[in-house]
Nucleic acid binder design. Structure first.
Lengths: 228, 228
DNA sequence: GCGCTGTGTGACGGTTTTGTTACATCATGA
DNA sequence: TCATGATGTAACAAAACCGTCACACAGCGC
């Protein structure tokens, strides 16, 4: 799924330029030209990030930021504010109001994208950072490593993701379609049987200490990862 | 080598308490009771951080901060100021004068240490004063040198920073983007692939004794420095 | 046992990612 | 100013990975 970015900017040419750059880099752009439209679209689309012009008519940029940061449902959405050169005092107020970064106009597309990515990188949760150990099979998301007792198992990116999914969702059957959804990602056009092949590769990779038995085939339904 | 902290505080009980807490947490404390002593010790010990009482007799705390921030040799030394509760205006003036953070008295040892660590984390290289040795590869941040057993290895500035980052953050995968953030700096916009080239240069530089194997490629994710 | 369906497995071609080199540019100091 | 070294990027080579297929094998109802 593409990352949704809400662009709140009153000047149409700039707004369209922003959308152009964003879309070109694979983001989804949602435009809003004023405070109220912005709030509506915020609620409607719950974007991943907000690009906010600081010079909205009536100086409502700062209000908008406050609104976002106060609301329970949107307070974690990062804000990047757009300021004109030299508006140093605004910058300070902006950061105080909860902006996560700022960009001084004029800026290059490259800079814009870089900052967006930098902010997004800082935000997403550390939820997936815990290591998991099941029956002596250890998966560490941080070092991106799988170990069985003392030795390092080597698996490709897809096998790793597949195993990570299984280990975080054990004791449950998943159909090939579901696995494609969760591991490969939604709307990827790939054959069901591809899952079989990766299951095979994964089993082979974790076989050295017999962990291949953890991945069980449920005939007619799919696969299950189970320690029992 | 322990991190040196200069404590500039006129009240002896507080000063000694600070030293006690600092030493207990593995820091080295250098005490100064007034402006002039402070400057002397600053020059003599070049501490990593300054803990500065804002209420020095004659209000010279602010002068002290300015002095530090103006001098070429000390301007990068972070300052944490100690303020009494409610001295809001001082806080503002303090931050303007170059303080990096402030703590309101009374504070708990825990808070003090937390803030010191937070500040040190922001100051590049400050907490990295100690030499690091991993698998016989030795990096000395002070002399800016890398040695493998008896050999001196020669690496360029970027390679050095990259290695330093890796050695202080081992056993963890970093994406190219993250490495650009941490090693090159947040607002530098260069291609992802540039990282590859520097990885290559770094590997080559540390290869003489086989240390290139410490830098591992994690396909699809980035690179990892690992002694395992 | 037989036929049918579902799964295991090895191999292949194409694609993506990474390694490596070369080169133009930039910075620095003599 | 020139020389030197460092840097970023492009281009090509090599390696890893992916999805698919063909065929073998296993489970199951008859």
């Amino acid at each position: 799924m593409a990352t949704r970015i809400l662009v709140v900017e009153d000047e149409r040419p700039i707004r369209e330029m922003l959308t152009f750059v964003l879309v070109q880099h694979g983001f989804e752009s949602i435009e809003a030209e004023d405070f109220n439209t912005g709030l509506d679209k915020l609620a409607e689309y719950s974007p991943t990030l907000v690009l906010l012009d600081w010079m909205l008519p009536g100086g409502s940029g700062i209000q908008f930021a406050r609104k976002i940061k106060q609301d329970e449902f949107s307070k974690d959405i990062p804000i990047i504010m757009l300021t004109a050169r030299g508006e140093e005092s605004d910058k300070v107020r902006g950061l105080e109001a909860g902006a996560d970064d700022y960009i001084t106009k004029p800026f290059s597309p490259k800079e814009l994208i870089a900052r967006i990515k930098a902010v997004l990188r800082r935000v997403p949760g550390a939820h997936l950072e815990e290591e998991i150990i099941i029956n002596g099979l250890r998966l560490d998301p941080v070092s991106h490593r799988v170990t069985a007792y003392q030795d390092d198992l080597s698996l490709g990116p897809t096998e790793f993701k597949l195993l990570q999914f299984f280990m975080t969702h054990p004791e449950r059957v998943y159909s090939r379609e579901q696995l494609l959804d969760f591991v490969w990602g939604t709307n990827v056009y790939v054959e069901d049987r591809t899952v079989d092949v990766h299951i095979r590769r994964l089993r082979k990779a974790i076989a050295p200490h017999g962990h291949d038995a953890l991945i069980q085939t449920v005939r007619g339904s799919g696969y299950r990862f189970s320690a029992k």
